[in-house]
Design a protein around this nucleic acid. Structure first.
Length: 310
DNA sequence: TTGTGTTTTATTGCCTCC
DNA sequence: GGAGGCAATAAAACACAA
C-alpha cells in the first residue's frame, strides 16, 4: 500500500504535510489507485461555469505540482446551492449509480469522486441520526413502560395489603365462628363437664389439639346455662386449654394442689362451672391469658389438660 | 482575538460483489 | 482484479463563548 509518505517521495522528494494539501491531498494505497486518477480541483465550484470548466489535473503531473506549490488550494466547503441540490438528490435516492454521479458532477461542476464522497458522508450522517432517533424512540417507550410498571406495582401492593387486611379480619371472624361452632358442638354432645373432658382428650390424642374453647355464662351462671346451647353469651366468657406437653408432670409443679384437688373434685362432681374457676375472656387474636392468671391443669397421658383462672 | 467544540470534506484500509 | 461501500479517522472550515 502506498502511503502519504510514498506520495511525498514520489513528488520530487518534497515533504507535503496532509494539512498543506489541497482537496485532501494525502492518500495512498487504494487512495493511490483512486486519487492518482482523481482530478484535483477546487471544491468551491458552484454552478459557476468558470469553475465548472476548470482544468483537471493529477498529482503526478508536474504542471499541476508546480501550480500546487505556488498556490496551495484550501479545502473548501460546498456552496449552499450545491448542498441543497445534493440534499434533494439524496432524498430521492441515497445511493449513487455511476450515471447519476456523473450527471450530478456535471450539474454541480464537481468531480464525480466528490459527489461519491458527499453521498458516502451523507449516508453516514443519516445512519448516525437514525440511530439517535431510534434510541430516543426506544427510550421514550421504555419510560412509558416503566411508568406503567411502577403504577401496576403500586396497585398490586395496595391490593395485597387489602387482601391481607381482609384475610386477617376474616380469620378473626372465622376463628370466632369456629370456636363458637366447636363449642356449640361440644355443648350439644356433652351432658357434663366430665364428658366434655373425656371427649376432648380422646380427640386430642389423635389430633394434638392445642386449644379447646369452653364457654360459660357469667360467674353466677350455672350448668343450666351450660346446657343451654342456644345461649350466645356463653361463648365469650369461658375458655379452657388443652396444652401439649412432653413432660406433663412439669405442668403440675406450679399448681396449687389444693386447688387442683378442688378442681378435680368439682369436675368429678360435674360442677366445674359452679366453682370460682371462671375462665378469662381471652382475646381471639392472641389467646394468651394475662400474667395474673393462674394455670390449672392435669396430665392426661402425653397431654396436659388445664385452664386459666384468676 | 483566541481557544475550543462541532461540522464538513476527504483519505485510508478493509470488505464484498461481479 | 477493479469498483464501490463502509467505518474510522484526519484535517480544514466554521461557530461561538470568553
Amino acid at each position: 500500500m502506498t502511503s502519504t509518505n510514498d506520495i511525498k517521495d514520489m513528488v520530487h522528494g518534497v515533504i507535503i504535510r496532509p494539512r498543506d494539501m489541497a482537496c485532501g491531498g494525502y492518500g495512498g494505497g487504494d487512495a493511490l489507485n483512486r486519487t492518482q486518477k482523481l482530478k484535483i480541483c477546487s471544491n468551491d465550484q458552484p454552478l459557476d461555469p468558470m469553475f465548472a470548466s476548470a482544468p483537471s489535473k493529477t498529482f503526478l503531473e508536474d504542471e499541476f505540482l508546480d501550480e500546487y506549490f505556488d498556490q496551495p488550494e484550501k479545502k473548501r466547503r460546498l456552496s449552499a446551492d450545491q448542498v441543497q441540490f445534493l440534499e434533494k438528490s439524496f432524498e430521492a435516492e441515497n445511493r449513487l449509480e455511476p450515471e447519476r454521479r456523473i450527471q450530478l458532477a456535471k450539474e454541480l461542476g464537481l468531480q464525480p469522486r466528490q459527489i461519491a464522497i458527499w453521498f458516502q458522508n451523507r449516508r453516514a450522517r443519516w445512519k448516525t441520526r437514525q440511530l439517535e432517533t431510534d434510541y430516543e424512540t426506544l427510550h421514550a417507550s421504555y419510560n412509558r413502560l416503566k411508568t406503567d410498571y411502577d403504577n401496576l406495582l403500586k396497585e398490586s401492593e395496595k391490593l395485597k395489603a387489602e387482601v391481607l387486611c381482609l384475610k386477617n379480619n376474616g380469620l378473626a371472624r372465622d376463628t370466632e365462628t369456629t370456636n363458637l361452632q366447636s363449642c356449640e358442638a361440644k355443648e350439644l354432645s356433652l351432658a357434663t363437664p366430665k364428658e366434655v373432658i373425656a371427649d376432648i382428650i380422646s380427640e386430642d390424642e389423635e389430633h394434638k389439639m392445642s386449644e379447646l374453647v369452653f364457654k360459660n355464662e357469667e360467674q353466677s351462671s350455672t350448668k343450666s346455662d351450660l346446657t343451654n346451647v342456644d345461649s350466645p353469651r356463653l361463648t365469650n366468657r369461658v375458655h379452657s386449654f388443652v396444652l401439649e406437653s412432653s413432660d406433663s408432670s412439669h405442668v403440675f409443679e406450679e399448681l396449687d394442689k389444693s386447688d387442683l384437688s378442688q378442681i378435680g373434685e368439682d369436675v368429678s362432681n360435674g360442677e366445674l362451672l359452679q366453682t370460682d374457676y371462671i375462665f378469662p375472656n381471652l382475646d381471639d387474636a392472641h389467646c394468651h391469658p394475662p400474667a395474673s392468671y393462674v394455670y390449672y391443669g392435669f396430665p392426661v397421658e402425653d397431654h396436659a389438660f388445664g385452664f386459666w383462672s384468676y
